Simulated assay, not measured.
Amino acid sequence: MNTLLLGVVGSNAYGLAHADSDVDRLGVFAAPAVAFHGLRLPIDRAATVVEHDPDVTMHEARKLAMLCLSSNPTATELLWLPSYEVGSPLGEELVGIRGAFASADGVRNAYFGYATSQFKRLLTTGQFQSKMRSRRSKHARHLLRLLDQGYEYYATGRLTLRLADPERYREFGERVAADPSVARAALAAAEERFAATRSPLPAEPDTPVVEAWLLRVREAYR
Protein backbone atom coordinates (compact mmCIF):
# COMPACT_ATOMS: atom_id res chain seq x y z
CA MET A 1 0.00 0.00 0.00
CA ASN A 2 1.31 3.44 -0.96
CA THR A 3 0.86 5.16 2.41
CA LEU A 4 1.05 8.94 2.24
CA LEU A 5 0.16 9.80 5.84
CA LEU A 6 -0.60 7.81 8.98
CA GLY A 7 -1.17 8.90 12.56
CA VAL A 8 -2.83 8.08 15.87
CA VAL A 9 -6.31 9.60 16.16
CA GLY A 10 -9.32 9.20 18.44
CA SER A 11 -9.20 9.21 22.23
CA ASN A 12 -5.40 9.08 22.35
CA ALA A 13 -5.21 12.23 20.23
CA TYR A 14 -7.83 14.01 22.34
CA GLY A 15 -6.31 13.10 25.71
CA LEU A 16 -9.38 11.06 26.67
CA ALA A 17 -7.79 7.61 26.52
CA HIS A 18 -7.71 5.29 29.52
CA ALA A 19 -5.83 2.07 30.19
CA ASP A 20 -8.26 -0.06 28.17
CA SER A 21 -8.65 2.31 25.23
CA ASP A 22 -7.84 1.06 21.76
CA VAL A 23 -5.18 2.85 19.76
CA ASP A 24 -6.88 4.02 16.56
CA ARG A 25 -4.88 4.98 13.50
CA LEU A 26 -6.06 6.83 10.43
CA GLY A 27 -4.22 7.27 7.19
CA VAL A 28 -4.37 8.07 3.52
CA PHE A 29 -2.94 5.99 0.68
CA ALA A 30 -2.62 6.33 -3.08
CA ALA A 31 -4.10 3.71 -5.35
CA PRO A 32 -2.11 3.33 -8.59
CA ALA A 33 -3.61 5.52 -11.32
CA VAL A 34 -4.09 2.48 -13.57
CA ALA A 35 -6.59 1.10 -11.04
CA PHE A 36 -9.03 3.84 -12.07
CA HIS A 37 -9.25 2.40 -15.58
CA GLY A 38 -10.56 -1.04 -14.62
CA LEU A 39 -13.98 -2.44 -13.82
CA ARG A 40 -13.74 -2.10 -10.05
CA LEU A 41 -12.72 1.43 -9.25
CA PRO A 42 -11.10 2.28 -5.89
CA ILE A 43 -13.84 4.75 -4.96
CA ASP A 44 -16.63 4.97 -2.40
CA ARG A 45 -16.63 1.90 -0.12
CA ALA A 46 -13.82 0.30 -2.08
CA ALA A 47 -11.65 3.32 -1.26
CA THR A 48 -11.50 2.54 2.46
CA VAL A 49 -9.51 -0.29 4.03
CA VAL A 50 -10.22 -1.18 7.66
CA GLU A 51 -8.02 -3.49 9.70
CA HIS A 52 -8.20 -4.65 13.32
CA ASP A 53 -5.59 -5.66 15.89
CA PRO A 54 -4.27 -3.02 15.51
CA ASP A 55 -7.16 -0.77 14.47
CA VAL A 56 -6.25 1.09 11.28
CA THR A 57 -8.51 2.87 8.79
CA MET A 58 -6.98 3.90 5.47
CA HIS A 59 -8.73 6.11 2.91
CA GLU A 60 -7.63 6.38 -0.70
CA ALA A 61 -6.41 9.88 -1.56
CA ARG A 62 -9.51 10.93 -3.50
CA LYS A 63 -11.89 9.70 -0.82
CA LEU A 64 -9.95 11.39 1.98
CA ALA A 65 -10.00 14.62 -0.03
CA MET A 66 -13.75 14.38 -0.59
CA LEU A 67 -14.40 13.72 3.08
CA CYS A 68 -12.25 16.66 4.14
CA LEU A 69 -13.92 18.94 1.59
CA SER A 70 -17.18 18.23 3.44
CA SER A 71 -15.38 18.95 6.76
CA ASN A 72 -16.05 15.41 7.98
CA PRO A 73 -14.73 15.59 11.57
CA THR A 74 -13.18 12.11 11.65
CA ALA A 75 -11.31 12.56 8.37
CA THR A 76 -10.36 16.18 9.02
CA GLU A 77 -8.52 15.39 12.24
CA LEU A 78 -5.88 13.52 10.25
CA LEU A 79 -4.73 16.86 8.84
CA TRP A 80 -4.32 18.46 12.28
CA LEU A 81 -2.29 15.90 14.22
CA PRO A 82 0.85 17.24 15.93
CA SER A 83 2.94 14.33 14.57
CA TYR A 84 2.71 11.36 12.22
CA GLU A 85 3.98 7.79 12.20
CA VAL A 86 4.27 7.93 8.40
CA GLY A 87 4.65 11.17 6.47
CA SER A 88 5.64 11.01 2.82
CA PRO A 89 6.40 14.20 0.85
CA LEU A 90 2.90 14.12 -0.66
CA GLY A 91 1.44 13.50 2.78
CA GLU A 92 3.29 16.53 4.09
CA GLU A 93 1.94 18.53 1.15
CA LEU A 94 -1.57 17.44 2.14
CA VAL A 95 -1.06 18.78 5.66
CA GLY A 96 0.34 21.96 4.15
CA ILE A 97 -2.87 22.65 2.19
CA ARG A 98 -5.29 21.71 4.99
CA GLY A 99 -6.70 25.21 4.99
CA ALA A 100 -8.01 24.65 1.47
CA PHE A 101 -10.56 22.08 2.64
CA ALA A 102 -12.57 24.23 5.05
CA SER A 103 -15.57 26.47 4.54
CA ALA A 104 -17.61 28.30 7.16
CA ASP A 105 -20.91 26.54 6.49
CA GLY A 106 -19.18 23.23 5.93
CA VAL A 107 -17.48 23.29 9.32
CA ARG A 108 -20.59 24.47 11.15
CA ASN A 109 -22.83 21.89 9.52
CA ALA A 110 -20.36 19.05 9.94
CA TYR A 111 -19.49 19.58 13.60
CA PHE A 112 -22.57 21.20 15.11
CA GLY A 113 -24.90 19.32 12.78
CA TYR A 114 -23.34 15.95 13.57
CA ALA A 115 -23.34 16.59 17.32
CA THR A 116 -27.01 17.57 17.13
CA SER A 117 -27.93 14.41 15.23
CA GLN A 118 -26.03 12.26 17.74
CA PHE A 119 -27.85 13.92 20.62
CA LYS A 120 -31.22 13.28 18.99
CA ARG A 121 -30.32 9.61 18.62
CA LEU A 122 -29.26 9.54 22.23
CA LEU A 123 -32.68 10.84 23.27
CA THR A 124 -35.05 9.21 20.83
CA THR A 125 -33.65 5.81 19.85
CA GLY A 126 -33.01 2.70 21.82
CA GLN A 127 -29.62 2.32 20.22
CA PHE A 128 -27.84 4.29 22.89
CA GLN A 129 -30.43 3.99 25.66
CA SER A 130 -30.05 0.24 25.69
CA LYS A 131 -26.27 0.36 25.97
CA MET A 132 -24.42 0.26 29.24
CA ARG A 133 -23.75 3.52 31.04
CA SER A 134 -20.09 3.68 30.01
CA ARG A 135 -21.08 3.59 26.35
CA ARG A 136 -23.57 6.44 26.78
CA SER A 137 -20.93 8.40 28.67
CA LYS A 138 -18.46 7.97 25.81
CA HIS A 139 -20.93 9.23 23.23
CA ALA A 140 -21.68 12.26 25.38
CA ARG A 141 -17.98 13.07 25.82
CA HIS A 142 -17.46 13.08 22.11
CA LEU A 143 -20.61 15.11 21.52
CA LEU A 144 -19.20 17.91 23.69
CA ARG A 145 -15.78 17.55 22.04
CA LEU A 146 -17.32 18.01 18.59
CA LEU A 147 -19.14 21.13 19.74
CA ASP A 148 -15.98 22.68 21.20
CA GLN A 149 -13.57 21.65 18.46
CA GLY A 150 -16.04 22.58 15.76
CA TYR A 151 -16.52 26.03 17.22
CA GLU A 152 -12.76 26.62 17.48
CA TYR A 153 -12.34 25.56 13.84
CA TYR A 154 -15.25 27.79 12.78
CA ALA A 155 -14.10 30.81 14.81
CA THR A 156 -10.35 30.66 14.15
CA GLY A 157 -9.73 28.48 11.11
CA ARG A 158 -7.60 26.15 13.22
CA LEU A 159 -8.34 22.83 14.89
CA THR A 160 -6.77 21.69 18.16
CA LEU A 161 -7.29 17.99 18.83
CA ARG A 162 -5.73 17.75 22.29
CA LEU A 163 -8.30 18.83 24.85
CA ALA A 164 -7.13 21.35 27.43
CA ASP A 165 -9.34 19.91 30.20
CA PRO A 166 -10.17 16.23 29.55
CA GLU A 167 -11.83 15.90 32.96
CA ARG A 168 -14.51 18.37 31.92
CA TYR A 169 -15.55 16.01 29.12
CA ARG A 170 -15.50 12.97 31.38
CA GLU A 171 -17.71 14.72 33.92
CA PHE A 172 -20.10 15.83 31.20
CA GLY A 173 -20.28 12.27 29.91
CA GLU A 174 -21.21 10.92 33.32
CA ARG A 175 -23.92 13.53 33.81
CA VAL A 176 -25.44 12.88 30.40
CA ALA A 177 -25.25 9.12 30.93
CA ALA A 178 -27.42 9.58 34.01
CA ASP A 179 -29.76 12.11 32.37
CA PRO A 180 -29.46 12.64 28.59
CA SER A 181 -31.49 15.87 28.75
CA VAL A 182 -28.45 17.51 30.42
CA ALA A 183 -26.92 17.80 26.94
CA ARG A 184 -29.64 20.23 25.81
CA ALA A 185 -27.91 23.16 27.50
CA ALA A 186 -24.58 22.36 25.81
CA LEU A 187 -26.25 22.23 22.39
CA ALA A 188 -28.13 25.47 23.00
CA ALA A 189 -24.95 27.25 24.11
CA ALA A 190 -23.06 25.99 21.07
CA GLU A 191 -25.82 27.13 18.74
CA GLU A 192 -25.64 30.62 20.25
CA ARG A 193 -21.86 30.74 19.91
CA PHE A 194 -21.94 29.74 16.26
CA ALA A 195 -24.71 32.22 15.49
CA ALA A 196 -22.90 35.09 17.20
CA THR A 197 -19.53 34.50 15.51
CA ARG A 198 -18.35 35.62 12.10
CA SER A 199 -16.05 32.93 10.78
CA PRO A 200 -12.78 33.81 9.00
CA LEU A 201 -13.24 30.70 6.88
CA PRO A 202 -14.20 31.19 3.23
CA ALA A 203 -17.65 30.55 1.83
CA GLU A 204 -16.34 27.63 -0.25
CA PRO A 205 -13.34 25.28 -0.04
CA ASP A 206 -10.43 25.93 -2.39
CA THR A 207 -11.08 22.93 -4.59
CA PRO A 208 -8.51 23.85 -7.29
CA VAL A 209 -5.73 23.58 -4.68
CA VAL A 210 -7.03 20.22 -3.50
CA GLU A 211 -7.42 18.90 -7.03
CA ALA A 212 -3.90 20.00 -7.95
CA TRP A 213 -2.57 17.98 -5.01
CA LEU A 214 -4.59 14.94 -6.07
CA LEU A 215 -3.27 15.17 -9.62
CA ARG A 216 0.28 15.22 -8.25
CA VAL A 217 -0.56 12.03 -6.36
CA ARG A 218 -1.83 10.39 -9.57
CA GLU A 219 1.30 11.46 -11.43
CA ALA A 220 3.54 10.02 -8.71
CA TYR A 221 1.70 6.67 -8.60
CA ARG A 222 1.01 5.79 -12.19
Rank of each mutant, 00 (worst) to 15 (best):
G10K: 00
A13D: 04
A13Y: 04
Y14P: 13
S21Y: 08
D22A: 10
A31Q: 13
A31C: 14
A33L: 15
A35M: 01
R40C: 03
L41R: 14
R45H: 02
R45W: 03
A46R: 07
V49L: 11
V50R: 06
V50Y: 00
H52K: 12
H52N: 09
P54W: 02
P54T: 09
D55R: 01
T57K: 05
T57H: 02
H59R: 02
R62N: 08
K63L: 12
L64M: 08
L67H: 04
L69E: 00
N72H: 05
N72S: 12
T74W: 09
A75C: 11
A75K: 10
E77S: 11
L81F: 11
L81S: 05
P82V: 04
P82N: 12
P82S: 07
Y84H: 14
E85G: 06
V86N: 10
V86T: 15
G87D: 07
S88I: 08
S88H: 05
P89G: 10
L90T: 00
L94W: 07
V95I: 07
V95A: 03
V95Y: 08
I97R: 05
R98H: 10
A100H: 00
A100T: 03
F101D: 00
F101V: 02
A102I: 09
A102Y: 12
A104Y: 11
G106S: 05
V107K: 01
V107S: 12
Y111T: 04
F112T: 05
G113S: 08
Y114V: 02
A115N: 12
T116M: 11
Q118C: 14
F119E: 09
K120E: 15
R121A: 03
T125R: 07
G126F: 08
Q127E: 12
K131E: 03
K131W: 01
M132F: 06
S134F: 07
R135F: 06
R136V: 08
A140C: 11
L143S: 01
L144Y: 04
L144S: 02
L146E: 01
L146D: 15
G150S: 15
G150I: 12
A155F: 04
T156F: 00
